[in-house]
Design a binder for these strands. Structure first.
Lengths: 135, 135
DNA sequence: TATAACCCTAGAGTGCAGTCTAAGGTCAAT
DNA sequence: ATTGACCTTAGACTGCACTCTAGGGTTATA
């Protein structure tokens, strides 16, 4: 069990951010010490790791909230809804994957065109690098 | 050459967004019609396509601005700086790529655990799905 | 020729995601 | 016992990326 400052340092976010996430339901208010200090578990650490990762790839806190609330159980009723929601998210994720691969390739083209040795550096911009990608 | 409304419809953004991007230097103010209407070229279309794609995968407008300004020329002096900047960006892009793959896998695990047929739907959350990923 | 559907500007307003401030309580070390 | 580093709350403030409003001009169609 760690205090907010420790978790903040570990996750490289501010204490305020962690309280903000709690206030907005991304991390459930858990244990408190005698003095009222928040105490975080290993699960909380993984949870905020997920939040940060998801944020980095362009999910909003709202979307992350929905992702974290997803839970497959034996409840037949909700199972269909979950499947639907998850598959919709997978589609979005696949689009992002494709987009980021495009960007990576164009950055790579740019990097390769640059100082590659003695051959003359060709004139090249991101947009030109992007256009060259025929796939 | 198309007017702002056409480009907005094509790129699925608002006219205001396009004017906003211009004001912030993401698209250079180009040709104007006799009446002062903005006129956009094919290059502008590709440009805003790039902006939108980059935004979707989590780049800020500021970062996108920097990416768009990158240009490899024969100027030896700036070449080193460009290489450095681009390679730093590639590192970030690679991290995002890894992160989005992680998220995709966990969503897939979640989807697979759900309504897979007659086998009992195992209890599964995003965090558990993430933990299962040993790679 | 007038009506709708477009375009312009400057500037105000909005929602998201924090970030900071004030005023105070707790804990470990000198 | 007091100093400093930590923790608490509520609420104000900030920066980003739009989004809207007001007040006006233009262009195509009935």
């Amino acid at each position: 069990m760690m205090k907010i400052g420790e978790l903040a340092a570990l996750a490289k976010v501010s204490r305020d951010t962690l309280r903000f996430y709690e206030k907005h339901g991304l991390i459930t208010p858990g244990l408190r010490s005698e003095a009222g200090y928040r105490l975080y578990s290993e699960t909380d650490v993984r949870r905020i790791g997920f939040i940060i990762g998801a944020k980095e790839v362009g999910f909003t806190l709202n979307e992350i909230h929905q992702l974290l609330e997803l839970e497959v159980t034996k409840d037949e009723k909700s199972c269909h809804d979950i499947k639907h929601f998850v598959d919709a998210k997978i589609t979005i994720v696949n689009q992002r994957l494709a987009e980021i691969k495009r960007i990576k390739k164009s950055l790579q083209t740019l990097s390769d065109a640059c100082c590659g040795g003695d051959e003359p550096a060709t004139h090249c911009t991101i947009l030109e690098a992007l256009s060259e990608q025929t796939n």
